[in-house]
């Protein structure tokens, strides 16, 4: 592995990990709220949250670019605060985070839906506040869904391309991830190099997906024995 490949791998893994960590708290909160929300409008919220899964990633990237660009509503605020996002590594994290968010929420939500709300009720009678019961009963029983969701989100972030290229560009050594690098090498006619990077990317993806499978399949000895 050349030094530049190592740097690419480290950068890609870091971006995916940071993106996953950033969406973890809001993702878990949204997933939990959706699992307990039975009122009207749930279907609409559900659909909107799932859009990034099916929209062309470039469309998502375009929306982000419009929002965060100098002239965009969020961009102006960030500009005033002196924070640059577009065409920086922050934009890479943001694009990956947005694309990965629905995967985390879907998996975590089904984890929460499996928790019997009556267990939480019992915890309340044993002296737990709502919040305490969440951390002592709900979350430990739903952790599998949350972990699987986080791993899926991480895997998705590893391979993100469309949204990233629009909002972060493809700047070698600055915003270039593995998937962006593969694209660039093919454009430059360096097919062998592109293939080598594709192989490295496959390895990373394999490990991430295998971990997901491992968590899903490992039957809880305690809870399902």
């Amino acid at each position: 592995m050349t030094e530049s490949t190592a740097e690419l791998v480290v950068f890609t893994l870091t971006v995916a990990a940071v993106a996953t960590l950033v969406i973890l708290p809001p993702g878990v909160a949204v997933a939990y709220a959706l699992s307990r929300w039975t009122g009207p409008g749930r279907g609409v919220v559900d659909t909107v949250l799932s859009l990034p899964l099916v929209l062309p990633p470039t469309a998502v990237g375009l929306v982000l670019l419009e929002l965060l660009g100098r002239e965009g509503p969020a961009g102006r605020v960030l500009d005033a605060l002196g924070i640059e996002v577009v065409f920086t590594p922050r934009a890479v994290v943001l694009a990956s985070a947005v694309m990965a968010f629905p995967l985390l929420v879907r998996s975590a939500r089904s984890g929460f839906e499996e928790v019997d709300p009556r267990l939480v009720a019992v915890a309340r009678t044993l002296g737990d506040s709502r919040a305490r019961a969440f951390f002592r009963v709900t979350l430990p029983l739903a952790w599998r869904g949350v972990v699987v969701g986080a791993l899926l989100a991480f895997s998705r972030a590893l391979g993100e391309f469309g949204a990233t290229v629009l909002v972060a560009g493809n700047i070698p050594g600055f915003t270039q991830t593995l998937s962006l690098a593969i694209f660039q090498r093919t454009q430059l006619g360096q097919d062998a190099e592109a293939l080598r990077l594709a192989f490295v990317a496959s390895l990373l993806a394999f490990v991430a997906i295998y971990a997901t499978e491992w968590v899903t399949r490992r039957r809880g000895r305690r809870t399902h024995a």
Binding site: A123, P140, R222
Partner: peptide, 14 residues
């Protein structure tokens, strides 16, 4: 301070 014992015990499985 009500000690509630449901019909199916509902022990915390974890």
């Amino acid at each position: 301070r009500m000690g509630y014992v449901p019909q199916d015990a509902l022990l915390f499985p974890h």
